[in-house]
Design a protein around this nucleic acid. Structure first.
Ligand SMILES: [Mn+2]
Ligand SMILES: [Mn+2]
Ligand SMILES: [Mn+2]
Ligand SMILES: [Mn+2]
Lengths: 221, 221
DNA sequence: TGCCATACTTTGATTAATCAAAATTATAAA
DNA sequence: TTTATAATTTTGATTAATCAAAGTATGGCA
């Protein structure tokens, strides 16, 4: 059985891999993401390699093997199902579920996960808009556009939030900027580095490009 | 923050304390209950004493201090609320919830526990009939009688099961012997070491005294 | 009283996970 | 090509939890 630590490393390697262009994940990015010293990441990754979960090439990086990828997708599924459960069934706020799920993903049995999945109606998307892998490890990453790169005057739908920091999520919630909401960019100011958006039948809000970049949207035909 | 291991020791010391006449728990009983070597229990209890959670007297035993008792009651509350949640909300069988709760009790946040408590209507009793301590650490152990020590021909109510082994619980469930059910002892055979009981408006079943001892009942006036 | 079985404690190791700091490499700049 | 910088790896320690096996104490029995 993989320990909680091993599971966290495997999942993080998967997530870092998604973020970058390259196909190999650096020790530095793992160490930063998991908040451990660089040497710790190196040591741990070597031990993951001994367990056949990853391929590790010194001074180059690490890549998940089939085993590892399967584990990562299983964890991602657990994490996201748990988040949705915490919001839908227990009524927690979407800003406080991530850390909770970070622990629970390692602890809930398959039996409990199946009950939760059924209770939620086998959902495909979590509260942040992240896709939930299927029980068989299928994951479809939708092709979404960062809000800051969107054209003006088009009708678009907020679909996914890539920054799960509690404060940022609370800000979005307070302003009604949650997945599912449709909006239009009504103004863009290149030099002020900001955009002005209008929620359908609602308020107008100004967003800096750093914030807008964390909001992924879908164009409505 | 107490580790999972520390929490398990503290809870076990509390539970062992309840089982015995004396007021001090032996290293041996802890080691057996937690399935660790005797020396491990000694070492660990000494470290609990360093943390001011217990008082430890070498070769005599260990007793919880106020801190420790508070922690134990908190865990017991969590454990039992979680068990009830797993049965009532997720629909697990009462025979498979104990191990699940054994992990979850260390991981769910206070916020989640409060949501669960509310969702369940602030219950006082778990699926095995075990009392749930209040959030302030109040626990009322009801005064119940083991079924094997009960008089014949009286109307009695099954109230608590002290053996939580899955197989035993499954047996009880199959025969309708769950907390809340009312029964009568219709026969007792001293030499066969068994009793015959009849479920109200139901079947008659024979139980050996070892099994009957694990079923606590309440006399119905 | 003295022995001894049993329970308990101590000792010396091991494993997993971590860190700080020193050593090494690779790469980009001069 | 040489050097400097940044990333990575290695080394030596530490902490928590555990075990096996050796050592110790104590309460009853002879
Ligand atoms: Mn995690
Ligand atoms: Mn999420
Ligand atoms: Mn536990
Ligand atoms: Mn119970």
């Amino acid at each position: 059985m993989a320990t909680v630590t091993v599971e966290n490393y495997i999942k993080q390697i998967y997530l870092e891999r998604l973020k970058i262009k390259g196909d190999v994940v650096s020790m530095g990015s793992i160490a930063t993401a998991l908040e451990v010293a660089p040497g710790t990441a190196t040591t741990m990754v070597k031990s993951l390699a001994d367990s056949e979960l990853v391929e590790y090439e010194p001074r180059v990086g690490v890549r998940l093997k089939d085993n590892g990828e399967k584990m990562a997708l299983g964890l991602l599924r657990r994490h996201r199902l748990i988040e949705l459960f915490l919001v839908k069934i227990l009524g927690l706020d979407w800003s406080e579920i991530h850390d909770e799920a970070e622990m629970l993903e390692h602890v809930l049995s398959d039996k409990v996960m199946e009950k939760i999945d059924v209770l939620l109606g086998r959902p495909k998307i979590d509260p942040h808009g992240d896709p939930i892998p299927s029980a068989t490890g299928m994951l479809d990453e939708r092709n979404l556009v960062p809000l800051n790169q969107c054209e003006i005057d088009l009708k678009i739908k907020i679909s996914r939030i890539t920054d799960q920091q509690a404060d940022f999520l609370k800000f979005l919630e307070k302003n009604g900027l949650m997945p599912g909401v449709t909006i239009t960019i009504i103004e863009r100011n290149q030099f002020a580095d900001s955009i002005m958006i209008k929620i359908d039948e609602g308020e107008s809000i100004s967003l800096g490009s750093a914030a807008a970049k964390k909001i992924l949207v879908e164009l409505i035909s």
